[in-house]
Design a protein around this nucleic acid. Sequence first.
DNA 1: TAAAATAGGATAAAATTACTCCCATATCAG
DNA 2: CTGATATGGGAGTAATTTTATCCTATTTTA
Lengths: 139, 139
Amino acid sequence: MPMQITRESDYAVRCLLYLKERGDAFSAVGEISETMSIPRTFTSKILQKLTKAGIVRSVRGVGGGFTLNREPGKITLLDVIEAVEGPIKVNVCVIDRKSCDRVETCSVHHIWVKMRKDIRKWLESYNFSNIEEAENTPR
Amino acid sequence: MPMQITRESDYAVRCLLYLKERGDAFSAVGEISETMSIPRTFTSKILQKLTKAGIVRSVRGVGGGFTLNREPGKITLLDVIEAVEGPIKVNVCVIDRKSCDRVETCSVHHIWVKMRKDIRKWLESYNFSNIEEAENTPR
DNA sequence: TAAAATAGGATAAAATTACTCCCATATCAG
DNA sequence: CTGATATGGGAGTAATTTTATCCTATTTTA
């Protein structure tokens, strides 16, 4: 499953689309998971990560649930993906130089570094305000 | 291991860097794997894939081995990664629409499609001629 | 025909992803 | 202050994928 976002990231995006729709209301896990077709307990875990990352806010107890913690326009795809998957690496050696003994002499190391930078920049350019506006690719 | 090339792709790139260095000579698996620190039998499998993809050419028997099948400048990173990992997906629904029952109503589907397109274009812009030239990122 | 090489299928080991379960903790209504 | 309804978090399980290895067949040259 290389060069691919995880199902978890996809689910996280769905959760946020739902919460955006709900505006200021608080939504419970069950409601989100059913509407967005995500396994319930997994949804719970994902929302926990999003909460820890400060992307959503939670309230426990009766009438509690989750809601966006900031404007949709200030939540980027990068924020979401890194919240659930951890920092994007592209190649292990980019984050952890000692993972590769060839790193000193490697003539392509800089390519992976640049690729990571460019992918992160790309993901950062989409947020939950412009993500749905973005022109639909015709056919 | 999301948004990350596989070790296999990394190994494939190493193989090609080595073969480029060797010019028109044929190199045996053992030689490539030892020099580039790749497990021997795995190297063999990777070279098989690269051969099938037409990126390298092989000759069996005494004095045989592998050599590039075309100019380094005509072998892109995309060619190599897709040769070993298969087509880049970014998200399952991009390649296989029926993998996601939400695809009809999904307001972000087009984002994954665009992301795939842009990543492929990026990878296509690097080949084994310009990949090493590319300015080394200072510090 | 023997030696040296790749080709390919099957399988094994390790790691990661994709979940589930259970109990603790918080919040609110009555 | 108690019970019902939520989320929080740790631990564990299942499924899939990645990362290999092994063995045998086939090709090629000397």
